[in-house]
Structures are given as C-alpha cells and as structure tokens.
Amino acid sequence: MKKVLLLLADGFEAVEASVFTDVLGWNKWEGNRATELITVGLRQQIKSTWNFTILVERVVSEIDLEDFDALAIPGGFEEAGYYKDAYDERFLEVIRHFHANRKPIATICVASLPLGKSGILQNNRATTYNHPTSIRKEQLRAFGANIQNSPIVQDGHIITSSNPATGFDVAFLLLETLTSTENTKCVKELMGFNN
C-alpha cells in the first residue's frame, strides 16, 4: 500500500485538494487498491479559501514521515492566509523530508511556492500560477527555479502545475507514478475520463 500525505494549509483551494482525494480514493476502491491518502495539517482544523472547513486526519507533529510514500499539496489564496501555513518551517520541513528521500511530490498551482521557499527547486524546472496578471512566476524564479511555460512540469520526482485546471492531470500523474500507466488508464476510464 502506497501512502500519500495530503498536506493542507489554511487557505487551500478545496477543488485542488479534492482531485487528490478523489483520484486516489477511486484507486483505493476501484483501481488496483494500492493507494491510501491521509490528510495532514499544522493543526486539526483547516479552513479553505472559500471557508470550507475540514478536520484533518493527522497533525504534522503526530506523524512519522517515514510512513509515507508521496506528498501532495494543493495551492491556495494569499488573501485566505495560505502562505502563513505554507511558509511555516514545520510545513517546509515536510517538503524537505520528501525531497531528501526522493519520494514523489505533486503540487497544483501556487503550491510550488512553498517548494521554492523550502529550497528544493534551486536550479530545477518548475511552474506555478501562470495568469498574465500574476506575479507568482517571478516569485518562484526568485527562489531559484528554472521557470517553464508549460501547464505541468515534471522534473525528477517533483511535479508542479500552472493553475487549478491542471488538478486532475496532476493527480493522475501522481497515481501513475505510484502504480502504473495501465492502472491509471483504468481509473480514468472508471471516472469517465475517456481519452
């Protein structure tokens, strides 16, 4: 069983978290049944960008990071306090652990920024929120990332993406990394994603 840590910050976008819970959940029940997702935060109660509040299954201080095989992080909104948690040293230490152990790290939209803040994107290819009015790409570049103009960028074990619309594709790419191409195609078909 591959265990995925879904790391949530206050201000996370619920839709970006839900693609991970749904794709990996479908795999757990309908695919090869080889994945389990655990929601984790810096505290028990985490509030999304639009005030959808959840109780995470575990708090960072209560877990052993060695128990997990992959890390998934949704992005969020600065106005909702996303970077307060996402730039917290405890959050960044989780990222550094997965990177040091070369375990898959999948992020959506601005969740690449805490990766940059943690120092793991130095000289690596990555992307982030790409709307022409956004400053996020420049912020990611300031962390030493080699910015790519692609919807999804995979550099080794790290996946970054450019906006919420990439969410399902990132979640399926993570599933494929953890299982197989054949299994991922099966789960996609079961979920109605006909290629």
Results as ranks from 00 to 15, higher is better:
F98E: 09
G76E: 01
L37K: 09
P132G: 08
I73D: 12
V153H: 07
V153D: 07
E176R: 01
G192E: 06
N27F: 00
F52E: 04
N101R: 10
A142C: 14
E16R: 04
I152N: 08
Y87M: 03
N51V: 00
A126H: 03
I105W: 02
V19T: 09
L174M: 10
F168S: 15
N123K: 13
G156N: 11
F12T: 14
F12D: 13
D88S: 10
K47M: 08
F172H: 15
V4C: 06
Q139S: 13
T181A: 05
E66S: 06
V60W: 02
E176Q: 03
T177K: 11
T184E: 02
A14Q: 05
N146M: 12
P104T: 00
R96L: 04
K28H: 05
A34F: 07
E138K: 05
L173G: 15
A111E: 05
L8P: 03
S180K: 01
C109F: 03
N194T: 11
E57D: 04
L42P: 08
T39E: 05
K2P: 11
L6Q: 10
G81R: 06
L42F: 08
I147Y: 04
D10A: 01
E138P: 01
K84W: 01
A34D: 07
A80E: 01
K28L: 09
A17V: 13
N101K: 10
S118F: 08
S150G: 09
G11I: 00
T181N: 05
A100F: 12
R33S: 05
K185T: 11
F68N: 09
Y83V: 03
T49V: 07
V23G: 07
E89M: 08
D22G: 05
L55A: 11
R102N: 15
E189F: 12
G144W: 06
G167D: 12
A126W: 02
G81S: 10
I158M: 13
S162D: 13
I73T: 12
R90A: 07
K137A: 11
S61K: 13
V170T: 14
I135K: 14
C109H: 03
N146L: 10
S118C: 09
M191L: 13
N32F: 06
L55T: 12
E93P: 03
M191T: 10
L8I: 05
V153C: 06
V40A: 05
V23E: 12
S18K: 15
W29A: 11
N51C: 00
L65P: 01
L55V: 07
N163L: 06
D10Q: 02
L71W: 07
Q45N: 15
Q44G: 09
V40K: 08
